[in-house]
Lab assay of single mutants.
Amino acid sequence: RRKSKRKPPPKKKMTGTLETQFTCPFCNHEKSCDVKMDRARNTGVISCTVCLEEFQTPITYLSEPVDVYSDWIDACE
């Protein structure tokens, strides 16, 4: 008699959501930077609500707010 092989359980999909508020690289306030994605103009704007620092970068249809933040961090270095 042959043993029946069980199929492995399906893999769980990533359910965690990406951050939309970030720590400002200038004033170091946590969750003080908000990202606005202007898909019509293909630009992402991130601004700090505390020190009013602002950064704008081009985006694509695949871009997420975390991509705008990482572009800002890269531009600071």
Rank of each mutant, 00 (worst) to 15 (best):
K31N: 15
R41W: 04
R6G: 13
F55I: 15
K3W: 00
C24H: 00
W72D: 01
P65A: 14
P58W: 06
G44N: 03
K31L: 09
T23H: 15
E53D: 03
K5E: 15
F22I: 02
K11R: 07
T20R: 10
F26T: 11
P9E: 09
E30A: 08
P25S: 00
D67R: 03
K11M: 08
E53S: 05
C33T: 08
V35W: 02
P25R: 11
V45H: 13
Q21Y: 01
P10N: 04
I46N: 02
R2M: 06
L52M: 11
V68A: 04
D34L: 09
K11D: 09
K13P: 09
Q21C: 09
V45N: 09
T15P: 07
D71N: 06
D67Q: 15
V66G: 13
R1S: 05
Y61K: 15
I46G: 04
H29M: 03
D34Y: 05
E19Y: 02
E30M: 01
S32M: 10
P9V: 15
R6Y: 05
Q21P: 03
E30K: 11
L62D: 12
T23M: 14
P65K: 13
T15I: 13
N42C: 14
S32W: 07
T23Q: 07
T49A: 10
Q21E: 11
C27F: 00
P9Y: 14
R6I: 06
K12N: 10
A40I: 08
K5W: 02
D71E: 14
V45M: 15
E53I: 05
D71C: 11
S70H: 11
S32L: 09
G44V: 00
F55T: 02
C33P: 05
I73M: 12
K31F: 04
M37C: 02
P8L: 07
I59A: 04
V66Y: 04
P8Q: 13
V45C: 15
T49M: 05
C27N: 02
S4H: 04
F22D: 03
K7C: 08
T15A: 11
T20P: 10
F22H: 08
R39V: 10
P25G: 02
E53K: 10
G44P: 00
E64G: 09
R2Y: 11
T20S: 09
F22V: 02
T57I: 06
K7W: 01
C27T: 01
V45Y: 02
E19L: 06
S32R: 10
Q56T: 12
Y69H: 03
V35Q: 01
C27Q: 00
I73L: 12
Q21D: 14
A75L: 10
L52K: 11
K12E: 03
E19F: 05
P10K: 12
T15E: 05
D71P: 02
A75D: 08
E19W: 03
S47G: 11
H29W: 04
I46R: 02
T20W: 07
K12C: 03
D34R: 06
C24V: 01
K7H: 15
K36T: 08
M37W: 02
S63G: 03
S47T: 10
T20G: 12
P10I: 09
T23V: 10
C48E: 01
C51D: 00
N28A: 13
T43C: 02
K13L: 06
F26N: 13
T23R: 15
V66S: 13
C48R: 00
P58H: 14
S32K: 06
K11A: 07
C76Y: 10
K11F: 07
T15R: 06
E64R: 11
N28W: 04
S70V: 11
T57R: 11
C33G: 02
R6L: 08
T23A: 11
K7M: 09
G16S: 13
K36C: 01
E53L: 06
I46S: 05
E30I: 15
P58Y: 04
P65R: 08
E64I: 10
V50T: 11
K7F: 03
K31M: 09
S4P: 04
K3I: 15
S47M: 12
S63F: 04
K12T: 09
T15V: 06
K36N: 04
P25L: 06
N42T: 04
Y61T: 14
S47F: 09
R39N: 00
E19K: 07
S4Y: 07
S70K: 15
P25D: 02
C27L: 00
K5N: 02
D74M: 09
S70P: 01
N28L: 04
R41L: 14
R2C: 01
Q56I: 10
P9M: 06
D74S: 14
R41I: 15
K31D: 08
S63P: 02
Q21N: 09
N42S: 14
K36V: 11
Y69M: 11
L18C: 12
P25F: 09
N28P: 04
P58S: 07
S70N: 03
D34K: 14
S47N: 07
V68C: 08
C48L: 00
P65T: 09
E30C: 00
S32N: 08
R1E: 02
Q56M: 07
R6S: 14
C24A: 02
N42D: 12
I59M: 02
G16Q: 11
Y69L: 13
P10E: 06
V66H: 09
K3V: 05
D38Q: 05
E30S: 07
T49S: 12
V35A: 07
V50W: 14
M14P: 10
